[in-house]
Amino acid sequence: MAAAAPTSEKRDVYTPPVLYPHSGTVWYSGQKHNVTWDNSNPPKSISNGAFILLRSGTYETPVVLAHDFNLRSGRVEVTVPDVITGTFSIVLFGDSGNWSEDFTIKGPITF
């Protein structure tokens, strides 16, 4: 098995803070919202494709809210999925994963 060739290319890690949703935000299943993040200091090169997952507690769910968008844009529109009413956060992936503050989604099912 061949070893991977070392690379001299410096990779930037870009973890823009998520601005919305934030604590106190309430979304309802079926609505559309813009997830926003601070895009004021992007590196010259962003090496990975961007996507957003829904997070519940300390676990990323398999629910992909958005993918293949430009991380430099600072926002992307998502449709709130049908979930059980609860507390969630979103995870913004580019070169690194960072997540929003906890917020509420009111789904079609409430326990």
Rank of each mutant, 00 (worst) to 15 (best):
Y28N: 13
S8T: 14
H33A: 14
K106N: 10
P42D: 10
A66K: 09
V80C: 10
A2R: 14
T15M: 12
T87P: 00
T58A: 10
D38A: 08
N48G: 02
M1Q: 13
G30S: 06
G24L: 12
G49N: 14
S56T: 05
D95M: 07
P81S: 04
P21M: 04
Y20C: 01
G97Q: 08
D38V: 09
L92A: 01
N48A: 13
K32A: 13
D95K: 02
G86T: 06
I109Y: 12
G74K: 08
F69G: 11
T104M: 04
S29V: 03
T7F: 02
K10E: 13
E77N: 08
F69L: 11
P17I: 00
F69D: 10
I46C: 08
L19R: 15
G74E: 13
G24E: 10
N70F: 09
R72E: 13
V26Y: 06
S100C: 05
E60M: 05
F88S: 02
G97T: 07
P81K: 07
L71F: 12
G86W: 01
G57Y: 02
A4C: 09
F93M: 02
I105G: 03
T110P: 02
T36K: 15
A50G: 11
Q31P: 07
G74F: 11
R72W: 12
I105Q: 03
Y14D: 01
P21W: 03
T79F: 01
T7D: 08
A4T: 11
V78C: 08
E60T: 03
D82C: 03
S47W: 09
R55N: 06
A50N: 09
I84L: 06
N39I: 00
G30M: 07
P21G: 07
N48H: 10
T110D: 13
E101R: 06
Y28A: 01
A2H: 11
S89Y: 03
M1G: 15
K32I: 08
I105D: 00
T110G: 02
V35Q: 04
T85N: 04
W27F: 12
P16H: 07
S47P: 04
S73E: 15
T7Q: 06
V64C: 06
T87V: 12
L53C: 06
L71N: 02
Q31A: 14
